Each structure stands twice: as structure tokens, then as C-alpha cells.
Amino acid sequence: MIFLKEVNEGNWYELAKLQTTEEQKKYVAPAVGIMARAYAMRKSRAKVYAIVKDEIYIGIAMVRDMDEYPECYELQQFFIDYRYQNQGYGKTALKLIMDMLEQEKKYNSIEVCVKMEDKPAIHVYKILGFEDTKYISPDVPDAYNLRYCFKN
């Protein structure tokens, strides 16, 4: 069974050991970098979640509030450790995150910025209902901004 667990002083070290494939390193920060980013963005309610399967840490995700336009949740970072990829865990974990945020109801959507060349990530987001906003940020011109809107 897959579940989410908030990162804390008791589990951060185990999460720091999670790794992506060599190819994915150009798309996502290392786990320690994700935790540091969340600390730096704590005023935006940034939180890091461990993705756990049967008490084994298999992934990590970071979500923050984006209070500027468009107001929404922003999935800043998300990955499944290379040893657990291609088994459906990413899709399951992403759905858990989406459900958790929908229950919170602070915003009506989630956005994620994904590099255009990261086809596997784009595929998973689109399967779960994320759509291209058609907005290309001048800060990240090689990335799509995808949005998922909660059903009211």
C-alpha cells in the first residue's frame, strides 16, 4: 500500500538517500535539495512528503501555495526513486497528492512546470487530467505549465 508521510526530523535522512536515474537529474532536484527548497519556501506553506510503500521510502514530493496569479497549489518537485520506477507508484502517489489537496480546498487547482523533453513525466500528468495552460514562462522557456482543476 502506498501512502504519504510528512517529512520530519525522524525520516529526512532516509529520504535524502532517494535518487533518480542519471537522465532525470536534469529535471528534478536531489532529495536533499527538495527539502532545502521547502525550508526556503516555508512562508508559502511549502511541505515535503515522503512517498511510502510498505514502510519503505520510495519517493518524495514538494508542494507549496502559490498566492500570486494564478492562485493554486504548485507541485514543485516530485520523483520516485529509480529502484521503484515503472511500477505505477508515481501515478498512485500523484493521485494521493491530488486527493489530499482537493480535500484541503484552499485552491481549486494544482500547477506543475515540466521540461518539454521529459516525456514520461508529461505522460503521467496528462493521464491524471493535467492540461497544458499554453503559458510559457520567460524564466523557463523549455517547460510546459500543466494544470489540474478540481471538480467542484
Rank of each mutant, 00 (worst) to 15 (best):
F3V: 11
L4H: 04
K5W: 04
K5I: 09
K5Q: 15
V7I: 14
V7E: 01
V7K: 07
N8H: 06
N8D: 14
E9Q: 13
E9S: 12
G10H: 11
W12E: 15
W12S: 13
W12T: 12
A16I: 11
K17Y: 02
L18R: 02
L18A: 03
Q19N: 14
T20Y: 02
T20C: 07
E22F: 08
E22T: 09
E23A: 12
Q24E: 08
Q24L: 04
Q24W: 04
K25F: 11
K25M: 15
K25P: 08
Y27V: 00
V28F: 09
A29Y: 08
A29H: 06
P30C: 07
P30L: 05
P30K: 13
V32G: 01
I34T: 07
I34G: 00
I34R: 01
M35I: 08
R37C: 07
A38H: 04
Y39H: 14
M41N: 07
K43W: 12
K43H: 15
K47Q: 15
K47T: 14
A50G: 09
A50E: 05
I51V: 15
I51N: 06
V52W: 00
K53V: 08
K53T: 03
E55G: 02
I56Q: 14
I60Y: 02
A61D: 08
A61Y: 01
M62F: 02
M62T: 04
V63L: 08
R64G: 03
M66N: 10
M66H: 10
M66Y: 09
D67A: 09
Y69G: 05
P70V: 15
E71L: 11
C72S: 15
Y73F: 15
Y73H: 11
Y73M: 14
Q76F: 09
Q76P: 04
Q77A: 14
I80K: 13
D81G: 10
D81E: 15
D81F: 10
Y82P: 04
R83Y: 05
Y84V: 00
Y84A: 04
Q85V: 06
N86F: 14
Q87S: 10
Y89K: 11
G90M: 04
T92G: 09
K95E: 09
K95D: 05
K95N: 06
I97Y: 11
M98S: 12
D99T: 10
D99W: 02
M100N: 07
E102G: 07
E102P: 01
E102N: 10
Q103T: 14
Q103W: 06
E104Q: 10
E104F: 03
Y107C: 08
S109R: 00
I110N: 01
E111W: 03
V112Y: 03
V112K: 00
K115C: 03
P120C: 13
A121Q: 01
I122Y: 12
V124Q: 06
Y125W: 13
Y125V: 06
F130R: 01
E131V: 09
D132R: 06
T133A: 07
T133G: 06
K134A: 09
Y135M: 11
Y135T: 10
I136C: 06
S137H: 05
D142H: 11
D142I: 02
D142P: 02
A143F: 00
Y144T: 06
N145W: 12
L146Y: 01
L146Q: 00
R147S: 05
Y148H: 10
C149I: 00
C149G: 05
C149M: 02
K151T: 14
K151V: 14
